[in-house]
Amino acid sequence: MTARTILITGASSGIGRATAELFLANGWRVGLLARRADLLDEIAAGHEGALSLPADVTDAGDVEAAFDAFMAWAGRLDVLFNNAGTFGPSGSIDEIDPAAWAQVLAVNVGGMFLAARAAFARMRRQDPQGGRIVNNGSLSAHVPREGSVCYTTTKHAVTGLTKTLSLDGRPFGIACGQIDIGNARTALVEDLTERARAEGRPVQPTMDVAHAARAVLHMADLPPEANVQFMTVMATTMPYIGRG
């Protein structure tokens, strides 16, 4: 059988990297999209089934060129893991620089839009038609952390994107789901942990990032007739229920 294909944004580190490595280990052909070419090449080294796609998700031209290169290499796109994101500055809304707000919006909403747009167009036109988009939301798509106005606002927008893509994709066999991950041990979560320590706040429980990667693989590996619309995977004792 021909190997299935996935393109992962934000693939150079954190959840994206862990997911890319798991998919490669399971025989998928994997497109690795992020800004850092050196880190992408490091992941791809020794894998014939990996393609480095250095690109900025906030640049429409970059995104289109990366998807074109992926299609030329892989032949089709079965799954997009729409993962690239940034937390941005912490603080109450009056403490946030508008330029910083715009940057978080550009990555977490604009980048998600551009990658989903590129994937949708190719899935709609490939033969056989269809595919799957998995958006990386967050527990912040449901309940906020303190001082997270930029991140929380954008992650609520991702939920709206997911629902709309699910509806608009039906005629073309394009499924869309969202994974909301809580406290996987990545550089971003470690940074939040250090901020909490510095501010004298409780440090939250975390989980191995591998659990998040396995959850994405489960969503991606479903047959076309099935879809995980929303999945929450998190550190068991983190304060999600009761938070907000």
Rank of each mutant, 00 (worst) to 15 (best):
R201F: 12
L114T: 03
E199V: 04
E146P: 14
A141P: 13
P128V: 08
F172C: 06
I174A: 03
A116K: 01
Q178V: 12
L192C: 07
G111R: 00
A119N: 12
Y151V: 00
L114F: 08
M207T: 05
L114S: 07
R145W: 15
R214D: 14
T159V: 15
T193E: 15
V109K: 00
H142D: 14
Q204Y: 14
I174Q: 00
C150F: 04
N135Y: 07
C176E: 04
L192A: 14
M112S: 09
A175L: 13
N183H: 13
A157W: 04
A175P: 10
A115W: 11
V189Q: 12
M112A: 11
A106H: 13
A196R: 13
D191M: 08
T159E: 14
T152C: 09
D127N: 15
E194R: 11
G182K: 05
G177E: 10
L192W: 13
A210C: 06
C150M: 05
G130H: 03
T186I: 01
S148M: 09
A141S: 15
R124D: 08
K155V: 06
R201Q: 14
G173H: 06
M112Q: 02
L167S: 10
D127M: 15
L105C: 00
T164D: 09
A106M: 09
D127A: 15
L192S: 12
L188P: 07
G177I: 12
A116S: 15
P205T: 03
G182E: 01
D191L: 04
V109I: 10
P128I: 10
